[in-house]
Design a protein around this nucleic acid. Sequence first.
DNA 1: GTAGGGTTAG
Length: 685
Amino acid sequence: MAASLSTPLDVHHTVQKSDKRRPVFFTKPQRTHRAVKFSVCCSSLKSPSKSQNVPDSPNPKTPSLSEQLKPLSTTTLSPSKNDQIHLLSKPKSTWVNPTKPKRSVLSLQRHKRSAYSYNPQIRELKLFAQKLNDCDNSEEAFLAALNEIPQQPTRENALLILNSLKFWQKTYLFFNWIKTQNLFPMETIFYNVTMKSLRFGRQFQLIEELANEMVSNEIKLDNITYSTIITCAKRCNRFDKAIEWFERMYKTGLMPDEVTYSAILDVYAKLGKVEEVLSLYERGVATGWKPDAITFSVLGKMFGEAGDYDGIRLGKPGLARSLFDEMIESGLTPDEKTLTALIKIYGKARWAKDALELWERMRENRWPMDFILYNTLLNMCADIGLVEEAEKLFEHMKQSENCKPDSYSYTAMLNIYGSGRKVDKAMDLFEEMPEQGVEINVMGFTCLIQCLGKARRIDDLVRVFDVSVGRGVKLDDRLCGCLLSVVALCETSEDVDKVIACLQQANPKLVAFVKLIEDEKTDFQIIKEEFRTVIRDTAVDARRPFCNCLIDICRNRNLHVRAHELLYLGTLYGLYPGLHNKTGNEWNLDVRSLSIGAAQTALEEWIGTLEKTVQRKEELPELFLAQTGTGTHKFSQGLAAAFATHLEKFAAPFRQSEERAGYFVATKEDLVSWVQARMHPSVTA
DNA sequence: GTAGGGTTAG
């Protein structure tokens, strides 16, 4: 640790609490609502004495970024197992020793661009570039067209043509042609322009080859080169490569500027490495960096996505809001993309008040709106349950010139009507879409089928399903999960058969599994094996919903043993991470991501475990918690209420917590005497 | 798109 303290990228100066001589210089923003403002972090810091401390040569002793970040990523950021850490531990303070100013992590100067000079041949060259663009994509055709070049190009003319080519294949051919002509030395800018074009074609391998060629030929890689490489790797989902090149840049002694820096922040954000992003962000701010709107978007988006809002992880909408406020105070006007990121966060967090206030500010200040922002507002309405507001906005879009509703807009409206059980309005939209020239896709069908299922309009559901099949829509796992949830809802065997017939077309293996679990004679080992196969073949985001629905189906058919088996298997295969949380003081059953039937099953299972623990006289914590969430979603399915009913059925001594919303609590004392009474009813009778 | 960074759905 000590050795790494002097390196530019040591971002974790957390010291022991006993080291009280060191003043707290700044703390990490709290991960709660109304988080500490970021300006507090930066304004209280003096600029380091050397803000531009750029080493001249690669420093082999410098640990790589990933090495430095390793302790964090392996201790607090590994998935599933450590999710609770974020929930239960308070944010750590970051301690800074002011007598040892840290070295910069980024250059405050942006890369300077070369100025364009007037080119009298511009028309002629543009025409020629157009010819190159129009010719066939083959190498032969391109080289033939190249032969008609008016004259051997100068450096400036070659750059102009290189910049005017539309397809990466041609840019690449032209770049290689210039090289063979040996007219002038190949400078960085030629590589940069070519790489940008290759990035459009997502040709990361070619970009990397060019970068290595630059290194071999001792052509300087600058910030533009690195940011292009990094963002191309990112777009090609090669996050490992993005980080690798970022580290290589530091090792050569080149400081990233804010563009490269925000690009790498986005890489870490996309990897879900929130703590690393915050550390890098704070290090940047501490050395005098004032993040711009794009960085705010990157961070805001990350805070919004840090939580899945299904109840497993904790989002950080408060941080996003603080950042946004800070950005406005600093005098920046948010653009469409920043607003989109923020509106999405408020929607997912179900922060209705903040969402509506922001929407109001957008209108008052006439902040820029675009198509995506309109659609994001509609989705926010769906998340929060703002039916009327969405309808108004949707109408507004219809009357607009440039923002007519598209498939995103219609899907959002179908989602709203589906969740709000406005089945007739949903069907009206379904009829209206072809008239407006908008094709309904699998997501729209899923919303509509869900809506019809909840309304028990099974014949309409079958009709809509048949339309989707007729249109050749690819029926995916989420649509199957939706059909499966309708199977669980159906009250008559006729209805069940109708929906099962649909599901049979979409996913026959799933239907076979439903039949298997419904047969009480099926052996558990067979269930286990088949469950594994079904889940393995299911898209990750549909796995838990499948298991929830299967459990609900069993409970509705009084197959309680089977329901318990399925919950066990779901837990075994990792579909319910963080369901049981045990600390020294309390046991917590977190059922927020479970369906009602699955939550009831989990409660019964929990009580069974308690009974065994009491029987064995093992140690128990003082407090027991069951977390259902508050169901603040306007369209929520009433998990908390159903859970409360189930607790009453057992006369279990849990009461709804007044201090902690969305929790049921019981003390050890009450619970133990209740369990003992259940086990020995004759003694207490 | 005129050498580099950030936006939408079930």
